[in-house]
Amino acid sequence: MAYLNPTQTARPDFIWPVFRFMAVQQGSISQRRIIEFTAPESLGAGDSDVVMSLRTLGELRLLESEGRGDEAMWTLGAMAKGIAVDDYAMFQKRLRSALFVSSEPDGRDLVDSAAADLIRVLCWFLKSDPHTEWATLTSVQTDKTWPSDISSNDTRWGAFQSWGSAVGLTASAPHTANACIADCAIAVRQALEELLHPGQEKEALEVLRGLRSLIPVLPGGILAETFGFHHESDLEAGPAISFALRRWEIEGWLKLELRSDSQTQIKLFTPDSDFSLLCSTVKRLESAGA
């Protein structure tokens, strides 16, 4: 259970500053030098967070190293190519890719991977409704559906909040302290930028399938299914995805339409109604703001 265990894996809060430092380096740099710049002795914080960040970035293939200890030489890895020092959005995309990459079509190899704990909780949490449901440490400790192999305590809960936000799949609840909701709008928008060019329109079902392919922990995605969180129907977007799509429609970045001549429609969840909102096409608007 490495990714929800701060003693085994660094949190994104520390990983991002270390990665930014590496992103501007030319060639390789020693671990000792990295520590001197990112955790100088004058701060009195020690070097453990930096060392753990380097190890985590190495496991995610964002960095590569040769040698051991302070003399190890670090360089950018294959997953880091093309990430600018200030491009946190691209960093988020690569984090998701690194965490969810699988060597097997059904993602079975990830069930026992270092990120299995994080993946399992994300799959569980993304089935909830961000309009009406939120999670706190207290609520998950008493929720019998919470993944049973994860011991809920404040350190694991804090790690989940940090990782969920870092990969754009959760957000802080706007009305309750130390709580989060299944707001995956950031990750969904980044995926839609790959699926749709500005001004392009596609069948809604094709877009929905594309989102589940790029973010396989979403309801209906291959990792959600493999980890035992089965989705009712391929056509049902579910609360979390619906929340994200409708948010970007409200903000003028997407246009969701139902065409009378459409062959297929997806069903978007509506929190204030017993009926689904049908959608047949999704269009990315060129004139939308960033």
Results as ranks from 00 to 15, higher is better:
Pro271Met: 03
Ala204Tyr: 02
Gly210Ala: 09
Gly221Arg: 04
Ile266Cys: 03
Cys279Ile: 10
Ile241Ala: 00
Ser233Gln: 13
Lys202Ala: 08
Leu223Pro: 10
Asp234Arg: 11
Phe227Arg: 04
Asp274Ile: 01
Gly228Ser: 10
Lys267His: 14
Ser273Val: 04
Phe275Gln: 13
Ile222Asn: 07
Ile250Arg: 15
Glu257Gly: 07
Gln265Val: 12
Glu203Pro: 02
Arg259Gly: 08
Leu278Asn: 07
Ala288Trp: 06
Glu203Arg: 13
Leu268Ala: 07
Ile215Ser: 00
Glu206Tyr: 00
Arg209Leu: 11
Thr281Met: 08
Ile250His: 11
His230Asp: 06
Phe229Ile: 01
Gly289Leu: 12
Gly220Val: 06
Glu251Trp: 09
Ile266Thr: 00
Ala237Thr: 03
Leu223Lys: 06
Trp253Met: 07
Glu232Lys: 12
Leu223Asp: 10
Gly238Ile: 08
Ser276Val: 10
Cys279Glu: 01
Arg212Pro: 05
Glu206Thr: 13
Gly221Cys: 04
Lys255Met: 11
Lys255Trp: 05
Ala204Ile: 08
Thr226Met: 13
Ser276Cys: 04
Gln263Met: 09
Arg246Val: 11
Leu258Lys: 15
Leu285Ile: 11
Glu251Asn: 07
Phe227Thr: 09
Val217Ile: 12
Gly220Phe: 04
Lys202Phe: 03
His230Ser: 11
Leu268His: 05
Asp261Ser: 14
Lys267Ile: 02
Ala224Ser: 15
Arg212Gly: 01
Gln265Glu: 14
Glu249Trp: 03
Ser262Trp: 09
His231Cys: 04
Glu286Phe: 03
Ile250Ala: 09
Glu225Ala: 14
Thr270Pro: 00
Leu278Glu: 08
Lys202Glu: 11
Thr264Lys: 11
Gly221Trp: 05
Thr226Leu: 05
His231Val: 02
Arg247Cys: 02
Glu286Trp: 00
Glu203Gln: 14
Leu268Asn: 06
Asp272Ser: 12
Arg212Ser: 01
Phe243Glu: 03
Phe229Val: 02
Lys202Leu: 14
Pro271Leu: 02
Val207Gln: 01
Phe275Thr: 14
Leu256Ile: 14
Gln265Tyr: 13
Phe269Gly: 01
Thr281Ser: 12
Gly289Gln: 13
Leu235Trp: 10
Asp234Ser: 13
Gly238Pro: 05
Pro271Thr: 09
Leu256Trp: 06
Arg209Val: 04
Trp253Arg: 15
Glu206Ala: 14
Leu211Met: 09
Thr264Arg: 14
Ala224Met: 05
Val282Ile: 15
Arg247Gly: 01
His230Tyr: 12
Leu223Arg: 07
Leu245Ile: 02
His231Gln: 15
Trp253Cys: 08
Trp248Ile: 04
Ala237Gln: 00
Trp253Thr: 07
Gly228Pro: 12
Pro271Ile: 06
Gly220Asp: 01
Phe269Val: 09
Ala204Arg: 00
Ser280Asp: 01
Gly221Ile: 05
Gly252Leu: 08
Ser280Pro: 03
Pro216Val: 04
Ala244Cys: 03
Val217Met: 07
Leu254Met: 10
Pro239Met: 06
His230Pro: 00
Leu211Trp: 02
Thr264Glu: 15
Glu236Asp: 15
His231Ile: 07
Leu256Ala: 03
Ala237Trp: 00
Phe243Lys: 04
Gly252Arg: 01
Ser262Cys: 11
Ile266Asn: 00
Leu245Gly: 03
Ala240Leu: 04
Gly210Ile: 10
Glu232Val: 14
Phe243Ile: 07
Ala204Met: 03
Gly289Ala: 13
Leu254Cys: 08
Ile266Gly: 01
Gly228Gln: 06
